[in-house]
Amino acid sequence: MNLRTLLLVAVPALAMNITASAQVLSASKGESKFFSETPLENIAAANSKVKAALNPATNQLAVKMAMTDFEFPNKLMQEHFNENYIESEKYPNASFEGTINEKIDWKKPGTYPVTAKGMFEIHGVKQPRTLTGKLTIEPGKITLVSDFIVALEAHKIEVPKLVMMKIAEQIKVQNKVEFANKG
């Protein structure tokens, strides 16, 4: 490879690198919490290693988290969650990939209600979802918050009859991701 061909490859690659990284915001310390509430037992767990990417130019949004990063106060529950319910060996991640529907002026600070249409995947089952949330633009950061419900049955997460009374069929999920706002 001579110098000219190297330059030929390197310059466009470098250019893409600069423009793309200026456009896409990413976060790796997002938070996701879930709650299962029944008269018999309340279960809560939190994941503070949620990864997300946001492209303000196209309104595209992607969120991904590892199931094994969910921390339970009760470690036996954590083991059961991974082993018996979510099967994290087979289905290691949950993700959402979609587009924010509203037109957003990313330069203007403020709080905006938003909806995002896309594909939500957990336990290997994909479902088209429109999630609602709140977008807060501040000078230094962009915060995206969204609460939604995961129905266990819709994602083929089985609960044995013996413990059915202890685990809610509808799991509440709270998510929060902060992007550093360079723009």
């Binding site: 110098l3 190297l6 490859v9 390197a10 793309a20 990413s26 990864k51 990417a53």
Partner: peptide, 25 residues
């Protein structure tokens, strides 16, 4: 040459529109 190679190694991090696959742990 080394200088250019260093830039190459930096690579296009988010060159594609597929945001999700870029989030691979």
């Amino acid at each position: 040459r080394l200088f250019i190679l260093a830039f190459l190694a930096g690579g296009p991090v988010f060159a594609q529109t597929d945001l999700l696959s870029n989030l691979d742990a």
